[in-house]
């Protein structure tokens, strides 16, 4: 329920803020705000939210092998994180 409410709140804020910025002739900011709020709302949509990128997922994918090599081969430290 909280997640659903936050999702709706985000979309509403994006639309309301976007319209207000559009009326102030800040069309680029309005577009950006709308896009940004849509992206954030995606995190709270059931099902889709789990597929949305997080820093933990991306960095674990990018750095895990480098970190494992650095710690296990260069520094010779066995970490539970890589098991």
């Amino acid at each position: 329920m909280i997640v659903g409410s936050i999702c709706i709140l985000t979309i509403c804020y994006g639309i309301a803020g976007g319209v207000r910025l559009w009326k102030r002739q800040s069309k680029y900011d309005a577009f950006l705000l709308f896009l940004f709020c849509g992206f954030i709302a995606g995190y709270f949509i059931p099902g889709i939210g789990n597929a949305w990128p997080t820093v933990e997922n991306i960095y674990s994918f990018l750095y895990e092998r480098v970190a494992k090599y650095m710690f296990e081969n260069v520094l010779n430290i066995k970490l539970e994180a890589f098991r």
Binding site: I6, T10, Y13, G14, G17, R20, L21, D29, L33, F36, C37, I40, Y43, F44, G49, N50, W52, T54, V55, E56, N57
Partner: peptide
């Protein structure tokens, strides 16, 4: 206008990480 969504992004990232 971006304060609320930026803070919400941090909250969303924390919620999923």
């Amino acid at each position: 206008f971006f304060v609320f969504p930026i803070c919400l992004l941090f909250f969303a990232i924390a919620h999923k990480s």
